[in-house]
Simulated scan of single mutants.
Amino acid sequence: MAHAKKFSQIPMSKCMRDLCKEEDYTFLNSLEKPDESPEESTCVESECQEKQEERIRRQQEREQLDREKQREIEEQQKEKDKQWKSHVAELAVQRKAIRAKLDRLREFRDFQKKVVLQDLGLDPGSANESVKHLLMRL
């Protein structure tokens, strides 16, 4: 089996190496048995063909599983995107509500300042430290 040593230096996948070994053994066996009848050679060929069909079937099953996994991953990604978009929309609504509340608080603060200044009889435009201090305490 000098060819095995020679071919072992060639880099290839394990699956491909197994496939090559099967073909090599089939070929070498057919060379060693020249006295085979045509029926035996067709039997060997049919076995090889069956093995090839089995490999093709397994490969198609793997490809089908890979497609299904890929589809599931895509569906999960779409679901995550949908959840993220709804979360962002919810945050935007919350942000608007907080800004509206802030605006109402500022309006109330201005109104409160105006009332205090009127009660004290001061000019609304004056910046008195005691008024600021009083509003801070409120």
Rank of each mutant, 00 (worst) to 15 (best):
Q70L: 02
K82I: 02
Q59L: 04
E90Q: 10
Q76K: 13
R99V: 09
R55V: 02
D81W: 07
A89F: 08
Q9K: 14
E68S: 08
I10C: 04
L19K: 02
L19E: 01
Q60P: 03
Q9C: 08
Q76I: 01
H133C: 15
R99E: 14
D123H: 03
K51C: 06
E53T: 10
E72C: 01
E72P: 05
R106G: 00
S41G: 05
R99H: 13
V116R: 01
R57D: 03
D24G: 06
Y25L: 05
G125I: 09
R57E: 12
D35W: 11
Y25R: 08
E54F: 06
P11S: 10
E47T: 00
R109K: 12
A92I: 01
S86V: 07
E90L: 04
S41M: 09
E79H: 12
S46K: 03
Y25A: 05
Q49P: 05
E63K: 11
F27L: 10
Q118Y: 13
R109C: 09
E39V: 00
H87A: 15
E32F: 00
E90D: 15
T26Y: 11
Y25M: 06
E107A: 13
E45I: 07
F108D: 13
K14C: 05
Q112H: 04
R17C: 00
K113D: 09
C20Q: 14
R99N: 15
E68V: 01
M16D: 15
L105A: 11
F108R: 11
A97P: 00
K14F: 07
R62D: 10
R62F: 13
P11L: 07
D66T: 10
E54P: 00
K51D: 14
M12G: 03
H3I: 11
F7Q: 03
R62V: 02
G125L: 01
F111H: 06
E107N: 13
E79K: 12
H87S: 14
R62G: 08
R58L: 15
K6C: 07
C43G: 10
C20F: 04
K101Y: 05
M1F: 08
L105R: 09
Q83A: 13
N128R: 15
Q60L: 04
C43Y: 15
K33A: 06
K101F: 12
L122F: 13
S37D: 08
C20I: 14
E54Q: 09
S126N: 03
G121N: 11
Q59C: 08
S8C: 10
C48D: 03
Q77T: 01
L91V: 09
Q64N: 06
E75T: 02
E22M: 04
F27K: 04
K33E: 02
K6H: 11
H133S: 14
Q59R: 05
S126M: 12
A97C: 07
C48E: 12
E129G: 13
E63H: 09
L117C: 09
W84P: 01
P34L: 14
E63C: 05
K82P: 04
K21N: 11
D66K: 10
M1K: 06
C20R: 08
A92Q: 14
D18F: 01
V88R: 14
D81Q: 02
W84Y: 15
S126R: 15
R71G: 00
F111D: 14
K101D: 10
E74R: 02
K6W: 05
D123N: 15
L102F: 04
D24N: 03
K113S: 12
K6R: 13
S37Y: 00
T42F: 09
M1S: 06
Q83S: 07
E75W: 05
S86K: 15
